[in-house]
Amino acid sequence: MPKGYVVLTEAIKDSAGMAAYSQAAAPSMAHSGATPLVVDGQPRVLEGEWHGNRTVILEFESVEAAQAWYDSDSYATARPLRQAAAESNAVLLSGFEMPRD
């Protein structure tokens, strides 16, 4: 089963609000088994345009686990804090598994 990844791009407009979001979101991430792979404020754009001034990539055991975290009651209390503090994009991606011969 492929892993699931949540990618957030954030154009932060309220640093204190994002700090409050981080405090509120951390327990839901820990409870869901999320592994933060990337938290970067300086993406190096190689082609096209990139949204925001911070990118976050979270890894989950599966796409279903990632969706369950995003839909969870514990994250539902944190999400509005992020949405108020930043213009955000969020996507859910399925990891790639090499075909076995």
Rank of each mutant, 00 (worst) to 15 (best):
P80F: 12
P80A: 06
R54L: 02
D14S: 04
V39Y: 05
T55I: 13
V45W: 09
Q42I: 07
P43R: 11
Y70K: 08
A11V: 00
T35Y: 01
P43Y: 02
A24E: 11
L46S: 12
P36L: 13
V91N: 00
F60I: 06
L37E: 08
A76L: 09
E61H: 08
E87Y: 01
A11Y: 10
V56T: 12
R82H: 07
V45E: 03
A85M: 04
S22I: 08
D101T: 13
A84M: 07
V38C: 08
D40G: 15
S74F: 05
G41I: 09
E64Y: 10
S88A: 14
G17L: 10
A78H: 04
A26P: 00
V91I: 15
E87F: 03
R82N: 10
K3V: 03
A24L: 05
A86C: 03
D101F: 10
S15V: 10
L93V: 12
G41F: 08
S72V: 06
V63F: 03
W50V: 13
V6M: 13
R54W: 00
V45N: 05
D14T: 05
R54E: 02
Q67T: 12
K13W: 00
V39D: 10
Q42W: 08
E59W: 05
S32F: 05
V38P: 09
D101N: 12
A68E: 09
F60Q: 09
A16K: 02
M29Q: 13
A66G: 15
L46F: 12
T77G: 14
E49Y: 07
N89I: 12
F96K: 11
V56F: 03
V56P: 01
T35C: 06
V38M: 07
Y5E: 04
M98N: 13
Q42D: 14
L58P: 02
A34P: 07
A24Y: 09
D101W: 05
G95R: 05
M29G: 11
L8W: 06
V63Y: 08
E47N: 04
L93T: 02
A26M: 14
S28L: 12
V7W: 12
R44S: 14
S94C: 08
Y5R: 07
R100C: 00
A34R: 06
E87Q: 14
Q42M: 12
G52I: 11
A76H: 06
A25F: 01
G4V: 00
R54I: 02
S94M: 05
W50M: 09
L37K: 05
Y70E: 01
S94V: 05
N53T: 11
R54T: 02
V91H: 01
R100V: 14
H51N: 08
I57T: 14
A26D: 09
A24T: 11
V91Q: 04
G33P: 03
E49N: 12
D71N: 14
